[in-house]
């Protein structure tokens, strides 16, 4: 069966959920092989096998940590050149997308970024993308070379398909250091006890209406009552009330949860770009003319500082 390369996203061997989604999608196209860069392959191999990776290609070279993106490009290109895969899947995100583009350029292949679904067709993978602030749905395919595709988180639910992977170590020849970007320091993203934005089934977001960093406790309290992730509009992030890693929208994270609850957010096009594919949308806003209400399945015209605490109380009461 055709081999499908999947670039593994991990921190010290802890594999992140989107990689498991990629392995699940890869199985629709052929037999997944995971490409693991850096340290921690021993820990990762079991998980990768559980989600169907028949092979794990390991590149454990210091360059992977010392330089940005280009070591991954060298590694993936060289592995692809000798394994001739039927497709290469990578996580969407600045690192994944830049790696994908440069690999595709070197392999003289086509590239599709930010796929929200990948299916098999007789001529190869067909992708689905959501464009123009999620107002259009586009299907596309690569017409030249090995399809290189980056996939957004939550494209599919990870499904186990256990195998025992063959582990192969690779010695990669890294290109000119003069064209490489040095990583001077690295601060892994802080992990909170709440679900991650892209992985959560419920997201509760606050905007300018929250009016202060300390007031975000109101948003967090509701998020915790619902087991939700916390999001924020760019206005709230720019004001310094909440970290940028929680920004929802065009230049933040794009989410597609079962429930998105927007409080004190007006619903600008750039914010909608990050949330309007959510299954159910709820808005709480003082201004009855706020555009967010146009897409709300349920809206409360009112003060979020009254509505949200009452909602939390009611949730607790109903749960006894």
């Amino acid at each position: 069966m055709a081999e499908i390369l999947v670039l593994v996203d991990h921190t010290d061997g802890a594999v992140r959920k989107p990689t498991l989604e990629l392995l699940t999608l890869a199985r629709r196209l052929g037999e997944p092989s995971a490409v693991f860069l850096g340290q921690g392959a021993d820990t990762a191999t079991e998980v990768l096998g559980r989600y169907g990776a028949h092979k794990v290609y390991v590149v454990d070279a210091p360059e992977v940590e010392e330089f940005l993106v280009t070591p991954a490009v060298d590694a993936l290109t060289q592995i692809a050149e000798s394994t001739s895969p039927a497709a290469i899947l990578l996580p969407s995100g600045p690192d994944g997308k830049e790696t994908a583009a440069r690999v595709a350029l070197r392999l003289e292949s086509g590239l599709i970024t930010d796929a929200i679904d990948v299916t098999a067709d007789e001529d190869g993978p067909v992708t689905e993308q959501s464009v123009f602030a999620a107002t259009y749905q586009v299907t596309a395919h690569v017409t030249q070379g090995v399809p290189v595709i980056t996939v957004k988180p939550n494209a599919t639910a990870p499904e186990p398909a256990p195998v025992t992977p063959a582990v192969e170590k690779w010695d990669v020849t890294f290109g000119p250091a003069s064209a490489a970007v040095k990583v001077l320091s690295r601060a892994p993203r802080e992990r909170s006890d709440r679900p991650e934005l892209t992985e959560a089934d419920i997201v509760v977001s606050g905007g300018r209406g929250v009016n202060g960093a300390e007031n975000f406790a109101v948003i967090e309290r509701l998020a915790d009552a619902l087991g939700a992730a916390v999001g924020a509009s760019r206005a709230a992030v720019d004001a310094g009330w909440y970290p940028h890693s929680h920004q929802v929208g065009q230049t933040g994270t794009q989410v597609s949860p079962g429930l998105y609850l927007a409080a004190g957010i007006s619903g600008a096009i750039q914010h909608r770009a990050g949330m309007q594919t959510s299954k159910t949308i709820v808005a709480v806003n003082k201004d009855e003319d706020a555009p967010i209400f146009d897409l709300a399945d349920y809206g409360v015209v009112g003060d979020l500082f009254k509505v949200l605490p009452q909602l939390v109380e009611e949730i607790e009461r109903r749960r006894g």
Partner: peptide, 11 residues
């Protein structure tokens, strides 16, 4: 701000 870490970089 990369995929899973904030990095300081130089070229």
């Amino acid at each position: 701000e990369g995929d899973s870490a904030t990095v300081r970089v130089q070229g």
